[in-house]
Amino acid sequence: MLCLLPHRRVRRRAGRPFRPRVSILVAARNEEAQIERCLRSLARLNYPSGRLEILIADDGSTDETAAIVAAFIKDKPQFRLLHIAKPLGTARGKANALAHLCRAATTDYFLFTDADMALAPDWVAGMLAALAPGVGVVTGITTACGGLFGRLQGLDWLFGLNLIRLLADRGLPATAVGNNMLVTRAAYEATGGFEALHFRVSEDLQLFQAVVARGYGFRNLCEPRVLGVSLPQPTVRALLEQRKRWMSGAGTLPCYLAGLFWLYGAFYMVLFWPGFLPLEWVAGVYFLKIGLQTAFLSVTLRQAGRRESLSTLLLYEPYLCFMSVLVLGYVLWPRPVEWKARRYVWAEA
């Protein structure tokens, strides 16, 4: 049910681009190997530097993250480094760092990204262009770079996010992704902020759900100017840890999306269970899935302004089969969720 909170209207003068001051918020913990890549992409944004406030939170790093950030931003007044020393309300970990960043921000528009991301030059303008009266949260499109393993992870990002975009275009709220997200100050403050929300490690999904519950609209985008390119997970173990953290929030997803994810994970176990289906049915269903999946990925890549070889698109299927079974087993394995050298019990996830 929509709430009756007044929404701030986005005002645009006819014939002039919408260029408000915005806050870009980056929480960083032990990111010495990748933070400069992110900072360089933010320094290259096609947006007036005087209208940018770029805040980086050093969340108790034990490496050289803070020193690298300080050296990079010393001659860039639009950047500022914060050191996180105390908890705010119920927030912990990354959610606490983000709560501090949002309190320090001085604009009406919060753009969230991660330290392992590089954003397209027109990212800010593209995200702002999706705003309309009543819209509180906008999510961009993300992929991953690197070798074959990284590009397959990138296809995973694109597949899932464009599926979520299709649901959003039909008015079905699913989730937002905190590495490529815009939230208006009005929508954020209506939730009470991260420090007022019950702590979970899937803080982006939690904030999205709180914003939508308060009657704000949402947009999910798939276009080149809002593309973010993440560094891939370096190993299968690291990828499994990431996916376990993601799946920890599946219980709070809308039933139609949670059902799709779990169905995708169980698809192969059911299809290839010995003797469950005739071989001709197994072959027919499997090759139909590959065809539809490859076509969907081809369209998604074109919409996002990316290209990929047909051989890699076809390799995505065995990768997905292998990872789906591994992730399902890893999620069911009773062990804590590990994230940024911190451990969280499943209830917190």
Results as ranks from 00 to 15, higher is better:
139 T>L: 02
128 L>W: 08
103 R>E: 13
136 G>N: 04
98 L>K: 06
79 F>H: 13
147 G>R: 13
126 G>T: 02
128 L>I: 09
103 R>C: 13
113 T>E: 05
57 A>Q: 04
108 D>M: 05
126 G>F: 06
142 T>F: 00
96 N>A: 10
59 D>Y: 03
126 G>E: 01
136 G>F: 09
90 T>D: 08
154 G>D: 13
152 L>G: 01
119 L>M: 12
74 K>T: 15
101 L>N: 05
59 D>G: 01
54 I>T: 08
135 V>S: 07
109 Y>M: 08
101 L>K: 07
86 K>N: 05
138 V>M: 10
85 A>Q: 13
164 I>F: 06
149 F>S: 14
100 H>P: 05
134 G>L: 03
121 P>H: 10
69 V>N: 09
107 T>F: 08
96 N>W: 06
166 L>I: 03
54 I>F: 08
63 D>G: 04
53 E>A: 01
88 L>Q: 07
131 L>F: 08
56 I>R: 00
151 R>K: 15
165 R>Y: 02
67 A>H: 08
151 R>I: 00
154 G>T: 09
74 K>W: 11
158 L>Y: 10
148 L>G: 06
89 G>R: 06
165 R>T: 04
61 S>G: 07
154 G>K: 02
55 L>A: 09
61 S>I: 06
73 I>C: 11
95 A>I: 05
72 F>C: 04
104 A>E: 15
57 A>C: 05
50 G>R: 01
102 C>Y: 11
98 L>N: 12
146 G>H: 03
78 Q>D: 14
85 A>Y: 05
120 A>T: 03
149 F>Q: 14
110 F>W: 06
148 L>H: 15
131 L>E: 00
53 E>Y: 02
122 D>G: 07
97 A>K: 01
156 D>P: 00
153 Q>I: 11
156 D>K: 05
49 S>V: 07
150 G>V: 08
147 G>N: 15
125 A>M: 09
49 S>N: 01
128 L>Q: 09
53 E>K: 01
125 A>N: 09
53 E>L: 01
70 A>S: 15
63 D>I: 11
143 T>H: 01
77 P>C: 05
118 A>C: 11
88 L>S: 02
76 K>E: 13
88 L>D: 00
87 P>I: 01
104 A>G: 07
100 H>Q: 03
105 A>L: 09
114 D>T: 11
112 F>H: 10
95 A>L: 04
165 R>D: 00
106 T>S: 14
70 A>D: 14
128 L>C: 08
50 G>W: 00
58 D>A: 08
132 A>D: 05
